[in-house]
Design a protein around this nucleic acid. Structure first.
Lengths: 120, 120
DNA sequence: CGCATATTCAACCGATTGGTTTAGTACCCT
DNA sequence: AGGGTACTAAACCAATCGGTTGAATATGCG
């Protein structure tokens, strides 16, 4: 797998267990054991998932005795949203131009054309 | 790999070549051959990439003689942004509450606190 | 110290991935 | 019909993934 930041983030979130971990961390920091509890896989497997999230920059960890509390680094989400929004906007602009063109040609407007507050 | 929609979309975008294909499709529809041209992999490999994007719902295809023009379905991006924004918001709200709490306790405000127009 | 708890490391396993080559299908043109 | 172009399917391969078990490390507690 490519090791650039965006690839790491996307592939970290491609796994439902890891997305669930992120969702739970959004509600508050938690230790590996706490995070592992709800799943029916071993704590080692969860430890690996957390490591993947950490390498993607989505999670950071501190130390509290033998515990390693995990903390969600939500800023990394920006990297994704920026990428997504950029191309979504391009695609929608293009669609809108096409729509205008079709109207000028006297045809029906294209169906499902995104509006200015597209896909809120 | 999990086959729920969100997993398919995230893992489709975890590959830099596929992200590049999406970026190029945002500028306009293109055929498999056109898309494959810039990369130094075989057209079959690109065909597979496009299939992955298609299965994630990011790309649709029509038919034009022997050509199969690819079209970006930007609406699917919403699925991701919704997921991302939800947990980012939760995490930031939590961070802000902590920040307020620290101030009430007379300490320094936490550093790097997200503002209301967080990480623009 | 000795033991329990929390976490990681290492080795292994089957499934999946991204790539290849080779072959097949679909369509146009003469 | 025959041949070229665009694309997909199939079989294969090395690398990675998500999981396991078992052992190691780090810390707190009596």
């Amino acid at each position: 797998m490519a090791d650039d930041r965006l690839s790491l983030v996307f592939s970290a979130l491609a796994d439902p267990t890891r997305r669930d971990i992120v969702a739970r961390l959004a509600a508050g920091d938690a230790t590996v054991n706490e995070l592992a509890a709800p799943y029916d896989v071993t704590v080692q497997a969860v430890s690996k998932h957390i490591k993947a999230l950490e390498e993607a920059g989505l999670v950071s960890r501190s130390r509290d005795a033998q515990r390693r509390p995990c903390h969600l680094e939500a800023e990394v989400f920006d990297l994704m949203t920026k990428w997504i929004e950029r191309y979504r906007r391009e695609a929608e602009d293009r669609f809108r131009r096409l729509d205008v063109l079709l109207e000028q040609m006297g045809g029906q407007p294209a169906t499902g054309a995104p509006t200015t507050e597209a896909a809120s």
